[in-house]
Design a protein around this nucleic acid. Structure first.
Lengths: 105, 105
DNA sequence: ACTATATACATCGGAAGCCGATATAACGGA
DNA sequence: TCCGTTATATCGGCTTCCGATGTATATAGT
């Protein structure tokens, strides 16, 4: 019933955003940093752990791979999750702007 | 280092937003639910745990209390943290909108 | 007077997520 | 040859959240 658990972590959100096209794990790391203007640097443990749980949820799936690389692609369920998260963020941001905007100091 | 740990949790963000005026713990629970349009319901463990850690960080402080109630107020450091979090959320939302907007399906 | 509900604070164990360190290994350039 | 980059993976530790449980008072209905 927890509404908070339904929120995606920033790591997961950027992983999903990084998969506009199929990409391998290390590429996701770099793309997430690029998409966030250098702010989000995924630790290895975070990334590879998330890749496992995201596959279990059916939000990403293997997309082959060349050599050592393992590529992943986002699934329709993954896109839906990212869109739902965006809606949550928009509401949260709006609420924050409204409330903080009323602070006098 | 970790850019992700610098993010506030939704629970903490709403607790700070709830403290536009001094309020006691149980009141924060209700105010957070109200501010989020019923979406965020803080569990007791989450709330009272967070009140302790937020005091340790100096983001909130005791503000007296009538009878059983313990009131808290937000500190300048707490307001700064909330504003920084809002900026992060604005950037995150903007990035999400841009990238998801380019998805074809 | 009895009972139910709301108010109010607090702690506990479990689950999940993130981090940094560590390990392994192939590749390319100096 | 040595080093930095690429690349995947696991581990222990820490923090945070949740739901359950416990305790206690206040209020309102019957």
């Amino acid at each position: 019933m927890a509404e908070l658990t339904s929120a995606l972590t920033e790591a997961v959100f950027y992983i999903l955003l990084s998969l506009g096209q199929p990409l391998h794990g290390y590429g996701i790391m770099q793309r997430a940093e690029e998409l966030s203007n250098g702010r989000v640097k995924l630790a290895a443990g975070t990334l590879y752990g998330a890749l496992t749980t995201l596959q279990e949820k059916g939000w990403i799936e293997p997309a082959g791979g060349e050599g050592r690389r393992k590529s992943y692609r986002i699934t329709p369920a993954g896109r839906a999750a990212a869109r739902a998260e965006l809606a949550r963020l928009q509401e949260l941001t709006h609420n924050g702007e409204t409330i903080i905007g009323r602070w006098t100091e």
